[in-house]
Design a protein around this nucleic acid. Sequence first.
RNA 1: GUGGUUAUAGCUCAGUUGGUUAGAGCGUCGGAUUGUGGUUCCGAAGGUCGUCGGUUCGAGCCCGAUUAGCCACCCCA
Length: 451
Amino acid sequence: MKPTLPKGTRDLGPDQVDRRQHIFGVIREAFVRRGYRPLETPAMESLDTLTGKYGEEGDQLLFKILNNGDYLAKADPAALESRDSALLTRSIAKRGLRYDLTVPFARYVAMNQHLLSFPFKRYQIQPVWRADRPQKGRYQEFFQCDADVIGSSSLMYEAELIRVYDEVFHALGIPVEIRINHRRLLQGLARICRLESHWQTLTTAMDKADKIGWDGVQAELIRHGLPAELVDRAIRLLQSSPSGARDADLAADPDGAAGLSELAEIRTYLGSAPLHNRLVDDLTLARGLSYYTGAILEVKATEVAMGSLGGGGRYADLTGLFGLPGMSGVGISFGADRIYDVMEEQRLFPASALHRLQVLVLCLDAEGHAESYRLTESLRASGIIADLYPEAAKLQKMMKYADSIGAGHVLIIGEEERASGLYTLRHMAEGIQQKLDLKGIIHALTAPTNC
RNA sequence: GUGGUUAUAGCUCAGUUGGUUAGAGCGUCGGAUUGUGGUUCCGAAGGUCGUCGGUUCGAGCCCGAUUAGCCACCCCA
């Protein structure tokens, strides 16, 4: 048979895994240093846990897992007869693959509330699955790196998580723009323009402003049947200067005022130290409105056309659906696969991300093989990534192998070297070699420039 | 879920209005070179042209379906 990968999935080779681990490492470090603790949850969740949490669209994108056994015999006869897939699903699939990390986290918190102390800060780096149509930067299986803090409504945490975004993308070398908005600003906007009843339509349309332009937004809103004069008013307000008329208008509305004051407080926390990246107030940002209740965050690369690299926000009551009401939380997510793609495109991965062989030992004759093996073990014991070519072969062949696997050095051991105790260490990239004893080799390979 | 587009050697791609035995570059393997890779030269292997069906005397090329990639919607990381 011809081997294939399922749609929207991919293999990662050794260099790719090394590079992804580098990304995870930078993110994890930023989380850990702020007291976030790791959490892992199962790839599959009960379908009851997942459905209804991501809106109607989200439910369609859930991967369902067929029940084991004779599932059709136990299927709902009415649903089977009517060929109603949505109805049938309930009787033939009781589990699904997780769609994000936030809902499993909420489930975990609700189930383990007696064990947890609040505020509880956790991070989670695991794959999630969505039955979406694949595209550039969009996969059916992809990794998310989430950090959430639950059980406190302090805006300190919004600032903390913005700082994490800033720090991580700076450390990875990706220039980004961090956008921030507030749900209550959007509510205020809608009320001021008397478009409360069209809130959803208004926000999803204006979110596309940078893509389809303001004319496009206006056209879309009018197509949806919103009164033209109110649409004009909304767009004028959105385009007006934040420091001038816009915020004055918003401040006149109770929700708008609350949103403005929260954003100002977050900025006060951030004022203690400058950010590497721009933090932009963006009134058009309207993501995750089915669950975010406070601040809304999004990160976009400024130098590459790629969807968002991360998103987050405040949710007033995440665990309420699981029987634990009144728990306010705030969280962010990194899209590891998109970050990877951006870094690949921009060649941002440092050589140190790759854990390739530092030295490959080449023994020229069978007699010296055992001694070469012991020497290789000594190098490994000194923390050097080392391996021994498994048999005495033509030097040319062994050199080609060393070159193709990207070994930093080769150590050549022949009769002459064994007699003198001075081995030939060759630096592959530079093509220079020197004769050194074991101590000298270890020194050369553990010096900072050769790591 | 909707629309567009692509699929030929391991990779990137050529392949004439449908016509005999489908090509190139790169890569791979062997040799030139029995203690020196990445550069050079010589040689070789490698294809049911994504899959299934149809039209035709004849299909890599035309038609239909299907699978996968890419792009744009929708939504999202």
